[in-house]
Design a protein around this nucleic acid. Structure first.
Length: 589
RNA sequence: GGCUGGUUGGAGAAACGGUUAACUCACAAGCCUUUCACGCUUGCAUUCACGGGUUCGAAUCCCGUACCAGUCACCA
């Protein structure tokens, strides 16, 4: 007999009915020898995790509940490092981030890198960089850290181990020694018998191995995984509540799912349980492909006696492919990668705006009412979210982007276009930087006011439209065939050019200038009015439009330009004259 | 195959049992216009996947069918 025999021994145990942790006080003797099975569970747990000393209570202390306002949501984005940011992931993180922020809560980002086979190194950071470009900056993440870290799953093993050890001790989990071959054989057998496939009930063979044998196998070094001992029954239905989809019934989970893989890392299901509990997520936003495993997740939370988080299963972004809809695929669809939009220069504001129209069906109506309001003044709601995956519509992205770009001030678009060009089109960037006020003047053309120009849907659209404003690019156009109307004699064209060159009249206001242009047209045998010309085509070489076209081609090398008057004003008389003379020389060759 | 979710025009969608099914994008025609872009006007679902039922009345409620999507791993 020793002293310890009489000292009360206390420990935490889950209450069988309520699932809550309760403190049990028993004598050491009782604890050590009284309950034989418990003793064996303890020994198995110790054999599996000989170096784990912390317990659940320690973890609860290390990761305490967050002190936040009552309705504040804690949401998260949990990408796997298997490539660059997916358009669907941007959508998901936009939603999660907004839900957290608009409720005064926390949005964090955790890297789910437990599948070491599929990992692409470096892609995790890339995701954060691209999110940041859209203004989505997590409060806590795997680069900046936070109080609930580590934010990389492979670094959280010490946490998972504590929980699994606890589960082994409490007979909530057990080691499974089945090999892949065993499992394949079992599946084939189940297929023949036409029963549900999987590891459950009578098929959960390792569940029935006597504990003494289990212990022996572990000590022997046999390889194993840890499975959750599901208390579920296929015959039971459970009620599921999803913030977006509402309530519906599902079959209770009866599968003894793997929670720890052979490599010692957790599976998704288990990592979700542990991470979202100890990181204190309140709302789990994730793709709808997870809906089917919800019974597993709820069961896991219940088994641990932990509060269930709320769930919001977001719709996927779809694509029409040969008549059927399917998820945007990174391999097949360039628009599935966010980098595609970055490279093409779609304004962030426009793209986010498009994503918002998918996120909440009433967003477009709100935008119509509040055309210039900040996009984040709009409050996202769960019940205005579409249930079916929306087909991705690039045309709509363009249209929305045009609207947003048209509303930018000249200073803003100048700055953003330069920022984009520096990254993706250095030639363009150096052109802008060669004379920033010149570029600024070009961007100012018909900007602001009631009906701003909508020439550009993306930054990459700008340069092809205005490149002729720069001599080196203008010269390129002059090397090719000029698109003059072939029905006009060269002498007529030269006459038009000489006439205008003699009197560019740019000191006049726009309408006076245009009147002047009309009188020059008349002088050269062109009708000043299109209607007039249509009545009597034989009397003229063409109309005022044809007249202006000749000068436009000469000065720009192309048939279309933004407002011609402003183009001419920005170019200046000297440059215009030079260009016209050059055209005449070319025509005379 | 089992289970779960979904189905309104080319796309996103509104509609909460009550006359001719909003709105945005796309498309088409016309107007405006020195070009382009913008803008304006008009057109674009005789019908809400299909079949049946309830009702004075159905896209809306009920039943059945079809189709689409997700899921059923030591992947997330």
């Amino acid at each position: 007999m020793n002293k310890g025999d009489f000292i009360p021994f206390s420990f935490w145990k889950r209450h069988e009915k309520s699932g809550k942790l309760v403190m049990i006080m028993i004598s050491y003797i009782q604890y050590r020898y009284g309950v034989n099975q418990m003793n064996l569970n303890q020994e198995i747990a110790n054999a599996v995790f000989p170096s784990v000393t912390r317990n659940l209570t320690d973890l609860e202390r290390i990761y305490p509940a967050r002190s936040l306002p009552v309705n504040a949501m804690v949401t998260r984005f949990a990408p796997s490092p298997t490539g660059f940011l997916h358009t669907g992931s941007l959508f998901a993180s936009l939603c999660s981030w907004r839900y957290a922020k608009q409720s005064g809560g926390v949005f964090f980002c955790r890297l789910e890198d437990t599948d070491t086979k599929r990992e692409i190194s470096g892609s995790g950071n890339q995701v954060l960089v691209e999110l940041a470009k859209y203004g989505i900056i997590p409060d806590e993440d795997f680069v900046s850290g936070g109080a609930y870290g580590p934010y990389v799953q492979s670094e959280r093993k010490f946490i998972y181990d504590v929980v699994i050890k606890d589960m082994l001790e409490n007979d909530l989990a057990y080691p499974c020694f089945c090999t892949h071959e065993d499992l394949d054989a079992m599946r084939r057998k189940q297929e023949i018998l036409k029963v549900n496939p999987g590891y459950y009930g009578e098929y959960a063979v390792c569940r029935l191995i006597p504990k003494e044998q289990v212990l022996a196998k572990i000590k022997n070094g046999d390889s194993f995984v840890i499975r959750f001992k599901s208390p579920g029954n296929q015959a039971h239905k459970i009620l599921i509540t999803d913030l977006i989809r509402g309530s519906f019934e599902m079959t209770e989970n009866d599968q003894d799912i793997v929670i720890m893989k052979g490599d010692g890392l957790p599976t998704y299901h288990f990592a979700h349980l542990v991470d979202d509990h100890f990181m204190r997520s309140t709302v789990v936003t994730r793709g709808e492909e997870w809906m089917a495993s919800l019974p597993i997740h709820l069961q896991l939370f219940d088994a641990m006696g932990w509060d269930r988080p709320k769930y919001a299963h977001l719709p996927d972004i779809m694509k029409l492919d040969e008549g059927t809809r399917r998820k945007l695929s990174k391999r097949k669809d360039p628009e599935a990668a966010v980098s595609f939009f970055l490279k093409a220069g779609y304004p962030f504001e426009g793209f986010l705006e498009y994503l918002m129209t998918i996120a909440n069906t009433n967003f477009e109506a709100w935008r119509l009412q509040n055309p210039e309001a900040n996009i984040f003044d709009f409050r996202l709601s769960f019940d205005k979210m579409t249930l079916d995956g929306a087909l991705f519509d690039l045309e709509k992205v363009k249209s929305i982007s045009k609207d947003r770009l048209a509303l930018f001030s000249t200073g803003t678009i100048t700055e953003k276009a330069l920022e984009w060009a520096k990254l993706y089109q250095p030639d363009f960037a150096s052109v802008i930087e060669s004379d920033i006020s010149y570029f600024h003047a070009i961007m100012a053309i018909e900007r602001g006011g009631e009906k701003p120009r909508k020439d550009y849907a993306k930054y990459s659209d700008i340069f092809p439209i205005i490149d002729f404003m720069y001599d080196q690019y203008y010269d390129q156009y002059m090397k090719g065939e000029l698109p003059f109307n072939p029905n006009l004699a060269k002498t007529v064209i030269i006459n038009v050019l000489n006439t205008y060159n003699a009197e560019p009249s740019l000191d006049l206001g726009e309408s006076e200038w245009f009147e002047k242009l009309k009188s020059m047209a008349t002088e050269c045998g062109f009708s000043p009015s299109v209607k007039e010309y249509k009545k009597n085509k034989e009397a003229f070489y063409g109309h005022i439009g044809d007249f202006a076209e000749i000068i436009r081609i000469s000065v720009s090398g192309k048939k279309n330009t933004p407002n011609f008057y402003y183009i001419l004003k920005i170019l200046g008389i000297e440059k215009i004259s030079k260009r016209i003379n050059k055209t005449i020389a070319l025509l005379k060759e």
